[in-house]
Design a protein around this nucleic acid. Structure first.
Lengths: 327, 327
DNA sequence: TCCAGCTAGTAAAACGTTACACTAGAGCCG
DNA sequence: CGGCTCTAGTGTAACGTTTTACTAGCTGGA
């Protein structure tokens, strides 16, 4: 392993000068600077991050804590975050909490031990590991905002509204709601954005709350069986929507001919499933990138408080919704 | 931040003794040991990983380099690896090379700079970043073996054979192959395992090689249009199979009534798509866990050489294959 | 009684950086 | 020429661990 000392010896200057060159500090002549850089390159010098970290307290490492890589929304997010981070020379440590709060705080504690510079976190539920809250440094929430934290996410309410407008346009008046977990703001706002858009015109025939991972509860299955004259099912996310479509098809109900379905997230599957799912697209790449930027600002000492960055969403019209003719 | 020095001061011993206790080394009395541990706990001591790393040269960090998180096979793998690693107190740094060789070597170099203890790598293509090859420490390949490296993967040939047996059993005699990139051993063995199982009984009507990400080439689409009397399409993985089914359905060809399709990997979508895809299941969890174990052995100094661990696979029969009656 | 051998513990030197406090020399002005 | 201010550079002390070499004190056997 080649160190600053080796470079210093080879060039014939002190290690301080080498360090100054490498960190682009002043007080070093152009000729020396050139020579140091040349030798560093020739020797294949790579700064020892551990030593740097010890000295500076910065590890150039980010933590990324996600609830469930199995939900295809999160790999996309991870990809975006990793990419942006890497372009800035940061490495990202992934924690997949796999739906368990215990695993989540466990992962958190591991990240803290490794002294990550900051954490991008998509929290599982409303409960926090209090002991860790104190210790955690800069943190930015992603996709699931929560009071007291900086957060980056998309405009769920707008998504709900777009769906409502679309539903109205397509003639649907009675809908069933397969909402996500209502303790999550991200799920609640989708639901409320939809429900409150046209309270007079659209009525909610029934409503069941299910987890985001697409496992339908017995109650949800029952709702899908009875349907109660709903002509459209508005699901909390794509996974729920796709599971619902599967469930309906196994019940012998045709989508979209007998009943329409919408999702939320625009994961890749929406385009591969039959019928292709009409849904709301979030700008995942921008969200991930912005989260990294915000985190970096926070690390740099800027007090971002609980600043929120909210991105617009977009309706993606595919084949899972059919116009409904009023009787 | 509380350090060994603080503990030492609080207990009234030297930092060496504290270190000895913390690292479970001998030469420290039971009473002292107890006191040190108690104080450490009370003060909420967390070892500074950076300092440890500098001293020991070990970072307790693993790199995980994957080609494409967008392919749902890889998140599952990442989950398995991360989980196993975490259970051993290791943190994993994720690199998603996004299909670009440049990005892959870039990520590699970042990992090396951060001095990860080892790397679990699913290589993109057959070309290696030579400059990095020298520098890389312990490395275990996952899913895509390559000569000269330790590797963990499943028995692709067995998978191919199982599919061939199944095809035969279902009466299919003429098949079309939508194989993965043939420069990858993992794709080649699937293909060969199938092709060589019953060379006399099953004939290959046509064969096109396409990328694993499910983007069908023009040539592939053309093959799907003409079909040439093939009654079964054997795809290199599930993503290809699902894309093929989409393509067929847009051509108005019914799966499995007019033509059957098989996949490989058993990703979660296979169960959500219509018709549900018959495929080969790999033990992803076991593969990930084993890779971590193998890497750890290698890090511990055991020379594992290019040892391979190969896992059995399993046929998952669903709805995308229909028995074919010979004319 | 003496010494070997053990136990419990300590002092201090690394590890590779960064950053602070210096200094030698040059240039400039009055 | 004295004294001031720059520039270019140096020496060295940290950072928080681990680890090596060492010591004081005790025990027990001959």
């Amino acid at each position: 392993m080649v160190t600053v000392k080796d470079i210093a010896a080879a060039v014939g200057v002190s290690i301080a000068t080498v360090s100054n060159v490498l960190n682009e500090r002043p007080n070093v002549g152009a000729a020396t600077r050139r020579k140091v850089l040349e030798v560093a390159r020739r020797l294949g010098y790579r700064p020892n991050r551990a030593a740097q970290a010890m000295r500076t307290g910065r590890t150039r490492t980010l933590g990324l804590v996600l609830p469930d890589l199995t939900n295809p929304f999160f790999p996309e997010l991870a990809q975006a975050v990793e990419n942006k981070a890497r372009s800035l020379g940061l490495v990202v440590c992934l924690i997949d909490s796999q739906g368990s709060v215990h695993s989540e705080s466990d992962g958190f504690s591991l990240l803290l031990q490794h002294a990550v510079d900051g954490i991008i976190w998509c929290p599982l539920g409303p409960r926090l590991p209090v002991s860790l809250k104190k210790l955690a440094g800069p943190t930015v929430l992603i996709d699931r905002p929560r009071p007291g934290y900086a957060a980056v996410h998309s405009d769920y309410e707008m998504g709900g509204r777009l769906l409502a407008e679309y539903a109205l346009r397509m003639g649907h008046r009675r809908v069933g709601l397969l909402s996500g977990p209502q303790q999550l703001e991200s799920a609640r706002q989708r639901r409320d954005g939809f429900a409150k858009a046209f309270p007079g015109d659209i009525q909610i025939a029934w409503e069941v709350s299910v987890p985001f991972d697409g496992n339908l509860t017995a109650e949800a299955v029952e709702a899908l069986e009875r349907r109660r004259k709903a002509t459209l099912i508005v699901a909390g996310n794509d996974l729920i929507a796709i599971s619902a479509m599967r469930c309906l098809s196994s019940l012998g109900v045709a989508v979209p001919d007998e009943i329409s379905v919408t999702g939320f997230d625009n994961i890749r599957w929406t385009d591969l499933v039959t019928p292709r799912l009409t849904t709301i697209a979030q700008p995942v790449g921008a969200i991930g990138a912005r989260a990294v930027e915000l985190l970096l600002e926070q690390i740099a000492g800027k007090n971002v408080g609980s600043a929120r960055t909210v991105f617009d969403v977009e309706l993606i019209e595919r084949d899972s919704v059919k116009p409904h003719r009023a009787k």
